[in-house]
Amino acid sequence: MALIELNGIKKVYRHGDIETEILKGIDLKIERGEFIAIVGPSGSGKSTLLYILGLLDRPSSGSYLLEGKEVLKLSDDELSRLRADYIGFVFQAFYLIPYLTVLDNVLLPLQYLPRESRKKKFSNIQPEKFAEEILNRLGLSDRKNFKPEQLSGGQKQRTAIARALMNKPELILADEPTGQLDSASGKAVMEILKELHREGKTIIVVTHDKEVASYAQRIVEIKDGRIVRCSSSSKN
């Protein structure tokens, strides 16, 4: 069974009388453990698709099966709980909370993880210990008590990745993760995502950068709200 199956996803925005169709019927199957890049020019609807995949936004019509279950019928709060459990987000603008230390930013999602999942996921490790392990792995252990403003762009994005990993999600969604980074930091971030993929995580990256897309196994190209091409990347 596919991890995610989208069928006929449409998204329409209304501004007064004007209707804009951002997504015009997307069918997409994502297997567990895939690394997918969604590419396309700006305004093509790729970010909207990512937010729909991340259960942050609802399509106007279509169906979304997560592990074979239709999720669009669920309430907002049920979607919130699914997000906490299944999905880790990495954003272009990092979205680190300025008054929290690096470690506390990483621990932040834990309070939203439903209790049963928390018990299951952290049965053999203390969450705090796990957070330190991730930071250690991402080369941030000496920065754990720093505030975000004291970090470089690359460190900020690595902190955001650590936060995305905190709840041990099935799926990692990254929206232009290298958009605000210099090329060296960007490369480092993509290497981390690649490594996470190798460990079995499902990763979806939205980008307009060909270099970034080349890390993925499969590249989904979107134009004017439709998938125009699906191809395998040469690098993998």
């Binding site: 919130s80 987000f89 979205y95 909370i97 939203y112």
Partner: peptide
């Protein structure tokens, strides 16, 4: 507002 948006993205329910 972005912080509340982030918390929701991280899985915060309305009640939380």
């Amino acid at each position: 507002q972005w912080e509340i948006g982030l918390r929701k993205a991280l899985g915060a329910t309305r009640k939380k």
